[in-house]
Each structure stands twice: as structure tokens, then as C-alpha cells.
């Protein structure tokens, strides 16, 4: 089992983890020209001190988070699959598993996948708002 490096960050008061391979760099709040996304199915950042920069087909995009907490290396066996009911409720393709960190289960995300479904999610939010 090869170890996997995770980037831990905090978003909307919750600790989350992301695979470092999908993140190009970490940006300071307001420190890049790439568009920032502050609304997502994961919530909205409270301070947006850091941003996770990812490469998408439309260019670099930044997911605003409260702050990056650090890195953690885990084994592949430590990644737990998302329960079907949870995957049904959340409805996120970017959610690729659960990782037990410090005694609690932490969402493991694929930020690049998450960005691919943000436009659909935003359209659904607009439709819900209009409804």
C-alpha cells in the first residue's frame, strides 16, 4: 500500500482533506488573478485566508477556504469509501472517500472533480432560488 499525501484545510468551520495531486498551489487570500469560488456544496469560507488553486479545462480556478492546516500522509487502506446513503445525500462526485484523522472522520475531496460539477450545482441553486 503506497502512502498518500493529503492536504488538510478548514472550510466553513469544518476540517477537510484533499489529495495533493489535484492541487497546483496554495494561494493567499486575494493574492492571485484566478477566479475564486467562495460558494460550493462544501459551504462558504469564513475568512478565505487561503485558496486552493487547481487546473481546470477553463484554466486555474481557486477554491476559497478558511485556511490550510497542513499536510498529512496516510496509507491507501486508511481511506474509507463513502457510504451510499451519504453519497446519495451529498450528491458530490468530488467526494472520494472518508479519512479518520485525529479521532474523527474527515471528508477526502478531489478539488478538480469538485470544480467540474460546480456549474451544475450553481445552476440548480439558481433554479431553486427562482422556484
Amino acid at each position: 500500500m503506497s502512502p498518500r499525501a493529503l492536504l488538510l484545510f478548514e472550510l466553513d468551520g469544518r476540517k477537510m482533506a484533499a489529495r495533493v495531486e489535484g492541487i497546483r498551489r496554495i494561494a493567499a487570500g486575494g493574492g492571485t488573478d484566478a477566479p475564486w469560488t467562495l460558494q460550493s456544496p462544501l459551504g462558504a469560507p469564513r475568512s478565505a485566508a487561503h485558496g486552493l488553486v487547481v487546473e481546470t479545462p477553463g484554466g486555474e480556478k481557486v477554491l476559497g477556504v478558511d485556511r490550510v492546516l497542513g499536510q498529512r500522509t496516510i496509507t491507501a487502506a486508511e481511506v474509507l469509501p463513502v457510504p451510499p446513503i451519504a453519497a446519495e445525500v451529498l450528491g458530490l462526485k468530488g467526494l472520494c472517500g472518508l479519512v479518520p484523522l485525529d479521532g474523527e472522520l474527515t471528508l477526502l475531496l478531489d478539488v478538480s472533480v469538485l470544480f467540474s460539477e460546480l456549474e451544475t450545482w450553481a445552476a440548480d441553486r439558481r433554479l431553486e432560488g427562482e422556484a
Binding site: 495533493v20 498551489r25 496554495i26 497542513g70 499536510q71
Partner: peptide, 15 residues
């Protein structure tokens, strides 16, 4: 900025 650089350095190191 140092923290951010360290984070990115650590990110690159992990990659």
C-alpha cells in the same frame, strides 16, 4: 507568506 511558501513547498514536496 512564509507559511504559504512552506505550505506550497510542502505541497510540492509531497507531489
Amino acid at each position: 507568506r512564509s507559511d504559504l511558501l512552506a505550505l506550497n513547498a510542502a505541497l510540492e514536496g509531497a507531489k
